[in-house]
Simulated assay, not measured.
Amino acid sequence: MKKLLFLPFLLLFLVSCSSDDQTEVSGNLQAQTLLNVTYGNDPQQTMDVYLPENRTTDTKVFVLVHGGFWYAGSKEDFSDAVPLLKQYFPDHAIVNINYRLAGFNSPAYPKQIEDIQKVFQFLDNSDYSISDDYAMIGVSAGAHLSMLYAYKYDTQHDVKAVCDIVGPADFTDENYTTHPEYENAAVALLGTTTPTQEQLLEVNPVTHITAQSPATISFYGGQDYLIPTTQGPRLEAALNNAGVYNEYNLYPNGGHFDWDLATMTDMYSKLIPFFQNHF
C-alpha cells in the first residue's frame, strides 16, 4: 500500500508534489498548503490541507483516510494522491488526515470515528472558504472508516461520494468470521476476539446503508489475504437493494492493493470519472 497508491499516474502524467508552506497568488484567494494542522488535542490528530486558488464556499473537498489495519499507517501513505487529485480536480480542496491509532487496551472504535467527526467539525467551522460537500477516499481500514462514517454518522448527508479500496464492508460475512485474520481485526477494531452481534452490527458499514447513502465505488482483489472476495459483492448487493448508485470492481489476480501497474492504471481510469460524474 503506502505511497504506491497514486505512483503510476504520477509517472504517467509527471505531476509535481506540493512543497511545504507553498502558496500561489492568483485571483481573490491564494492556493495554500497547510501541513500538520491540528484538529484535536492528541498528537495524532493532525491533517494536511490543500486549498485551491480562487476558492469559494462552493469549493468541494476530498477527504483522504489512510489504511493500516486500524493500528498503523499515517497520512503520508496517501501523500502521492494529492498531486493526482490536483491534476484532475484543480478547483477542489483536499484534506489528508491522521487519526488516533488503535493500541493495547485502546481499540479503534469509537475513537477513530470520533476523530473523523472532529475533522468535519473543524472544516465546517474553519475560515478556509470551502463548502460542506465532501467525498471520501479510503484504503483498507481507512475505507472501512470512510464507509462507516458516510453511511451511519453523516446525518447531514454532506458526504456525496465514497471510494472504497479493499475495505472491510460486512463483518457478518461467514467468509470473514472464519477468516484467519478475523480475530486480529476484531481486536484492533473492537478490543475483543469475540465481539457480540450487537458490536459487529454497530461497526458494520452495510448495516447502515439507506436510500440516502452516497454514491460508492469499490475495488477489491481476488487474491487478497486480508479481505475475503465476498466483501465486494455483499457491499454491492446492499447498495443495490437501497437504490444507491455504485460501481463494484474486482481484480481476480490482485492482492491487498499490492497491484501491478496495469491494474492500478485501470483502477484510476474508473475512479476519476466516477468522481467527475458523482461529486
Rank of each mutant, 00 (worst) to 15 (best):
M1V: 12
M1H: 11
K2M: 09
K2P: 02
L4P: 05
L4W: 10
L5S: 13
F6A: 12
L10P: 08
F13K: 15
L14E: 15
S16W: 09
S18E: 09
D20K: 14
T23E: 14
E24P: 01
E24V: 11
A31K: 13
T33M: 04
L34C: 00
L35M: 14
L35R: 14
V37A: 15
T38Q: 09
Y39M: 02
D42W: 10
D42R: 10
P43M: 05
P43I: 11
P43L: 11
Q45N: 07
Q45P: 11
M47G: 01
D48T: 04
V49G: 11
R55D: 02
D58L: 13
D58P: 11
T59Q: 02
D77E: 14
D77M: 06
S79L: 15
D80C: 12
P83K: 06
D91V: 14
D91E: 14
H92N: 06
I94C: 02
V95F: 00
V95K: 05
N96A: 01
N98V: 09
R100Q: 15
L101Y: 03
A102T: 07
G103L: 03
N105Y: 10
P107N: 00
A108V: 12
A108S: 10
K111L: 07
Q112H: 03
Q112W: 00
K118C: 08
Q121R: 07
L123P: 03
S126G: 01
S126N: 02
D132P: 00
Y134E: 14
S140L: 14
S140I: 11
A141Y: 05
A141D: 01
S146H: 07
A150M: 07
Y153Q: 14
D158P: 05
D158Y: 12
D158T: 07
V159C: 01
K160T: 03
A161M: 05
V162N: 06
I165K: 07
A169G: 13
A169L: 11
D170M: 03
D170P: 04
D170Q: 10
F171D: 00
T172M: 12
T172A: 09
D173V: 09
T178I: 09
H179S: 15
P180F: 13
E183Q: 11
V187E: 05
L190Q: 07
T194G: 03
T194Q: 12
T194M: 03
T196C: 02
T196F: 01
T196Q: 02
T196L: 06
Q197Y: 08
Q197R: 05
E198N: 08
E202Y: 00
P205I: 02
V206T: 13
H208S: 08
A211V: 11
P214E: 00
Y220D: 06
G222K: 15
Q223R: 12
I227F: 00
P228G: 09
P233F: 11
R234E: 13
A237N: 08
A238S: 09
A242R: 03
G243A: 08
N249S: 14
L250Y: 07
Y251S: 02
P252I: 10
P252G: 00
G254V: 00
D258P: 00
W259G: 02
W259F: 08
L261T: 15
L261C: 04
L261R: 07
D266S: 10
D266I: 02
Y268T: 05
L271S: 09
H278L: 06
F279Y: 08
